[in-house]
Design a protein around this nucleic acid. Structure first.
Length: 313
DNA sequence: GCCA
DNA sequence: CAGTACG
DNA sequence: TGGCCGATACTG
């Protein structure tokens, strides 16, 4: 099925299918192979039960147009404010900040990214907080759909609050992944759909993440982006500094013996973005300057970057 | 699909 | 595990 | 032309 689908209509169809949240290359190719090239064809097939999609994808289809629409900063701020209030009700000392393209100063934003930290939670996050937060937002009518099941989210398995996309269930499977290997950093992340407080009926994508206070500098860098800037920065960290960067910290690259569990190998400490750049020997860039791969520049040096592919290992 |  | 997502 | 981040996080 990866064969002769090279015609233009197929390319266009692929494009459209991939515009559905939750549909990537593989699934789009499959849909096109099955003859679906427009959102209306998908909706019709869904209604006639000729086609079946999982819950998250049904939400994606349901909100297709809304998700392709951009928001202005005022709307993003309005949504951020609603979330901030809800957070402060329970954690009065929490810091709630709008990240993503909004923080980079863009006039038009595709979604709302919210970072939550609290000086009271230095190395952990309040268990189940995000789930409870979202449940409250749901009760007050702000949440339209959930795209992840944050722990602490209205337990009762299949909930009735979600009506729209053909009902079914969302049973949360307590995957046996609770072994080692997980729980390393203990952050909380949530992805969902918010009812616009500005444009009635419009649904907006929202991501909310709660990080331990001591990880905040790294979390801020990550959540500010943009994506290419992050990738470039991580590549620099690995190739030039022999370290590994992610949203939880900057760590010395582990050897093969060392098998250091993230918990064991202590990360470099940083409490501000500037410190993260310093640790990496990079010229500090304001959020609005982080627009592409080449915006990552070494302090003492001209080279934008071309960090050698370090042939070995 | 993006970019060196 | 593959697929998708986030920046 | 050929690589391409994250010991990412989540779902099924």
């Amino acid at each position: 099925r990866i064969e002769g689908l090279k015609t233009d209509p197929d390319r266009v169809g692929m494009r459209k299918m991939m515009d559905i949240w939750g549909i990537g290359r593989a699934s789009a190719a499959e849909l096109v192979y099955q003859g679906y090239r427009t959102i209306d064809q998908v909706r019709r097939a869904l209604k006639e039960e000729i086609l079946d999609l999982n819950y998250h994808r049904r939400v994606g289809v349901e909100c297709y147009e809304d998700f392709l629409e951009k928001m202005n900063r005022t709307e993003v701020e309005a949504i951020g404010e609603i979330v901030r209030k809800a957070v402060l009700e329970n954690l009065p000392k929490a810091e709630v900040t709008i990240m993503g393209s909004y923080r980079r100063g863009k006039q038009e934003c595709g979604d709302v990214d919210i970072l939550i930290t609290d000086p009271s939670f230095v190395r952990e996050t309040p268990k189940g907080f995000l789930g409870r937060l979202v449940t409250r937002l749901e009760k007050s009518g702000s949440m339209a759909f959930h795209l992840t099941n944050a722990e602490g989210l209205h337990e009762t398995g299949t909930d009735s609050s979600q009506s729209p996309p053909t009902e079914e269930s969302i049973h949360s499977k307590k995957s046996a992944q609770v072994l080692i290997g997980h729980n390393h950093f203990s952050s909380q992340m949530y992805m969902g759909v918010f009812n616009s407080p500005i444009h009635a009926g419009k649904r907006r994508r929202i991501d909310i993440k709660f990080y331990p206070y001591r990880e905040r500098a790294f979390a801020i860098v990550f959540f500010t982006g943009n994506g290419w800037f992050n990738r470039s920065m991580r590549l620099w960290a690995k190739r030039v500094k022999k370290m590994r960067l992610n949203d939880h910290g900057l760590f010395p690259a582990g050897d093969r013996h060392n098998v250091p569990t993230p918990a064991d190998r202590l990360p470099m400490e940083a409490s501000t973005e500037s410190q993260v750049f310093d640790l990496l020997g990079l010229v500090y860039k304001e959020p609005h300057e982080r627009t592409c791969f080449d915006d990552v520049i070494g302090k003492d040096g001209v080279r934008s970057v071309k960090f050698e592919p370090s042939k070995s290992e």
